[in-house]
Each structure stands twice: as C-alpha cells, then as structure tokens.
Design a protein around this nucleic acid. Structure first.
Lengths: 290, 290
DNA sequence: TCGTGAGCCTTAAATTTGCTGAGCCTAATA
DNA sequence: TATTAGGCTCAGCAAATTTAAGGCTCACGA
C-alpha cells in the first residue's frame, strides 16, 4: 500500500541466472562452476533474490541445498527463458563473428589430437579462425559460448573414434618388457583424471591378477606423455592421443593387448549447425579425418 | 587459435538487456528510463557488448542511435527471450508473494482516484496488500514488476470510465462566474501533463473563440486541485479525479458544459490474470465500482 | 561410538567492477 | 544564432566478486 520510490528496480538478472543454474544443477558449487564464478557469489545472488522476494527458493541442508516447492514451481519457466536467451546469444555470436569457431575440449585432446591437425585445417579452411578453450568437463552448450565440444563420452552420437587403450613407453624401456607380467617391476605412470585406465586394461590383459599400478600420478595427461617419452615409465595410451607419438617412434606399445572401452571421442554441437557456417565446415573437416 | 583463459566468460547479461531495451525502444535514453539507470550506463553496456563481440550493433548519429543490420537480425531473438524471462519473473513474483498486488498508475490517479478507494478495498479483500507505484508513463508490463496498470489511454480495452472534463473551482469563486465568457477575467490553472485540456473544453464550450488560459501551470495535477480548493483559480477537472471534491462541496462546476474526450481511464494487466489471484480480485473489485 | 576426511555452503574483509552525475559535443530545429 | 535532444567522457563513489577461513553433515573405518 506504500507509494514506492521512483524507480522500482526489477529482479536482478544475474541473481536469476544464478538461481536457474543452481536449481538445474542441484547445487551452488556446480552453478558457480558453470557460471565461472565462486560459490560465494552464487550464495550472495540467491540470498539477494530470496530477500527481495521475501520467500526462500532453496532448503539449506548441511549436505547442500535443495529446491523447495516454490523453486520447483518456477524453475521450468526460467529454464525455458534462459535457453531462449542462450540461443539468441549463440545466434548473435555467430552472426557477429561468422568466421570464428570456438571449440571446447579437454586439455589433453587439445594438445595431442586437435593441435596437430590445426595447420592442415587452417589450410583447408582459410579465413576461419579457431579458438580453443581447454576445460575438464564438457560445458553446457546452451549456456556457454562454444560452437563445438570435443570430449570423451559414453554416448556414441557424433563419435569420431572409439576409445582404445594400451600401455606405451619409450622405445628403450620397451626392450625390457616382454609380457604384461613384467609390469610388476616397472614404473607405471597414472593420470589423475583417468585413474581407472590401468585397471581397465589389466582386467583384460592380465585377468584375475588384481593389478594396481605403482608410480607417479600426473594431473595433466600431456605431462604424463612427455614423461613417458623421456623414459620415466609406462603409461596408458589412448589411441587417438598417442598415435602421432607412435608414428614418430617416440613411444611404442610393448604389449599386444589393446582394450576397446565403451567410450568414444565425440564431437558435437548444440543446435544443428547452419549449413555452410564456419562451425559446420570445421566439424565436417574434422569428421572427414583431417 | 589461442588457448583461452580458464574461464571464458559469457556475454554479460545486463549488457544484453541494455541492448534489447535500446534496440526495442529506439534509443539509449529510453532504454535507460525503462531499466531505471542513467543513459551513461546504457552507453557503457552497449559499448562493452560491441567490444566483446568485435562488431557494432548500432549506428551512431548525432540525432541518436539506430540499429545496424546485425542488430536488426538478432533483435527478435532477444525480445522473445526477455519476454519469456519477464513472464517467468512475473510468475515467480506472484507465487512468492501471492497476497501482494503491485499497481502502476499516474500520481494524480493514485492520490485522487485510487487512494480514496483503498480503505474499502482493504476491507473487501483482507489480507491482500496493495503496493502503488506512481509514474508518468505506463510501464512495459512484460518487463516491469507490476501486476496492474491504471492510466488514461485512447484504447477502450479494460476501460473503467470515459474521460469527462469541465472547469471546477472553489464555491466562493463560482459565484462570480455565470457564463464561459467570464473566464476571460479569471485565473485559469493548467496542468503541465494535460496542457491541452483547457483548449479541448473551450473548443466545445466556446466554439470559435480560440481560448487560451491565463494563469499558473502546475506539474502535479494534485497540487493544482489543492490550489483550486484554496480558491486560487479555475482548473479543468477530470470527472474521475474530482468527483470526491465535488461531492464534498470543496469544488463546484460553475458551467454546464461537460466535454467527453476520446480517452478512457483504463485498468489492465499483461497476462490474463489467474482466476482467484490477488491481482484478479483487486481488478474485479475496482471494476465493480468499488 | 567415535574420530577423520571430504563435500558443500556461508561469512567477512579486500579488491575489482560498475554506476552515477555533471559537463561536453554534435546535429537538427526555430 | 540560440536552443534542444541525444549520446559520450570521466572522476568519484557504491555494489558485486574474490579470497580465505569456518561450520555443518555424511560416509568411512577403527
């Protein structure tokens, strides 16, 4: 009933986006990651929103947050709205920079698979500029500013190659390794993100032996590859990522057994790519095998 | 081709909203008003957006700005997206505060028409809290946080009353006024926003005389009414706004001629009001004549 | 059952970002 | 030539974000 101040400010846009992300992803930390901010910022946004509304949207438990009834009722509307906004932004981006393609991919794929193909790609598609963003998790293409995603995934949709793994090492070291049993005395490098690789391979190569690798763990696969080349030990090679090193002889596969995982190197986009667009041309070129 | 920084920030939301508002309304100043910020902030937002895109969205002329081709192509997508977002926000507001109704109206209507009805409305609808925001122009209900708009307008949709005007003054002064010709020697108060009222009335009451009022102009109609009650002069009364003063005898209409304008006191909302919602109940009560 | 560790949110202070408000500039109007 | 309307610039200040520390549970193992 009060006469409000001259400028009744609308609900803050960024707070609404924070709410939508947190609600959709089921937590403030996940939302913070998607939005590229810290969890504290999400906390502040949601709290500001709830204060301004005079009603809570989440139930706080020490184990995280959960949408309450009000939040559940309004979430779909916001998801649709932000989806529409994301599409408009994608359109804007591609119309504003029609000759630029943004690719999101794993750091290891970026360096070991994509980077070696770029010179030929630039030659095949002159005038197209390719920007690569390395990240650990595939982004939500409806929200993030990327045209193409290139990641490993269970889904076969848009697969470029099956994920095939096998131990690799420097040629000098391979001479001492005759059978998988020789691994017991060798240094086995692990990658933090793909910690299960050794076990997955050993399950087929040395069934029933419960192998667990002993050796250093690197957080960057690329670093592990460099160390293996230097003779620091064996590591699990992903065919797509080490084929260049194998061809050049910097790495060799000392054992016969290759394990095909239920996982694919996938290249995908959100909306169907506009025919003839830069993103479509890059995608086709990569699919055609470079 | 460069590997981007870890957090490729998306396009800033507020800048997109500024662009959408400026594009839709055809100027930065208008957008600034709708958004409740200064034009300088809109300038900065749009510039930031254009810089980040690497492409202009507006053509700058000294006479204002105009959308360029790129802007024209992407505007519809953003209008749809922000419309959807506005609807989601409206839903959120009404679900979060189901017993509150936000009304946007002219300051004069707020004080002279709405305010006198509020006590009875509160009694008829206990538990509903009514918040009134006074503004000169009807807000865009798709964007502004209001449930109901109450303004004069040409459109008859949702009309509560026709706009009928006629001179009014304090009773003491009325005794000296026998015919409209006596206006020549009287003080005729004008309202800045309704500067044409005297001419519109005179055109019918004193045809062919080219009457133009001499006397002070007030920017607030309510203030003009108070001055008229004090005997400061005659003013044009709008029937809906001065009927209470006439009934109480604080003002009288010295002449017979009443002019019915092609204008209505209108009450409207954006989305159809949910049956039984607080806004719907208030709207019905006001339409029923209080 | 009790510690211990990990995950997740919150808080407070420091920093960065963005807003305002007054003045300047340009072009169209009178 | 004066005036008006609209957008731009920049110094000073307010608001949002980060950073770092803290608290609260759950899950695990003794």
């Amino acid at each position: 009933m009060a006469v409000s101040p001259p400028r009744p400010k609308d609900l803050p846009l960024n707070a609404l986006r924070a709410f939508e992300a947190a609600a959709r992803l089921g937590g403030f930390a996940a939302a913070a990651q998607e939005l590229g901010v810290t969890p504290g910022a999400v906390t502040a946004h949601v709290k500001a929103l709830e204060t301004q509304l005079g009603a809570a949207l989440f139930e706080r438990t020490a184990r995280g947050v959960e949408l309450n009834n009000l939040g559940k009722r309004v979430l779909p509307g916001f998801m649709d709205a932000f989806d529409a906004l994301g599409e408009a932004v994608q359109t804007l981006r591609s119309e504003a920079a029609p000759r630029t393609v943004h690719v999101a991919t794993l750091p290891s794929i970026a360096q070991l698979w994509l980077s070696p193909r770029l010179p030929a790609l630039r030659e095949a598609a002159p005038g197209i500029s390719i920007s690569i963003t390395a990240m650990e998790q595939p982004p939500n293409l409806k929200r993030a500013p990327h045209d193409l995603c290139l990641f490993y995934g269970e889904d076969g949709q848009g697969a470029l190659a099956r994920d095939v793994i096998f131990p690799v090492c420097a040629p000098a070291m391979a001479q001492r390794l005759k059978t998988p049993a020789d691994l017991a005395t060798a240094t086995c490098i692990s990658d933090a993100a793909w910690a299960d690789d050794w076990a997955a391979w050993a399950a087929q190569a040395m069934p029933g032996e419960g192998f667990s690798p002993r050796g250093p763990t690197y957080s960057l696969y690329t670093l592990a590859v460099a160390e293996a080349v230097n003779g620091a030990g064996l590591m699990i090679g992903h065919e797509s990522l080490v084929s260049d090193h194998l061809r050049r002889g910097e790495l060799v596969a000392p054992f016969e057994v290759r394990v095909t995982l239920d996982r694919y190197l996938r290249l995908w986009s959100d909306q169907p790519l506009a025919k003839g667009s830069a993103a479509a041309r890059v995608s086709e070129w990569l699919r055609a095998g470079g």
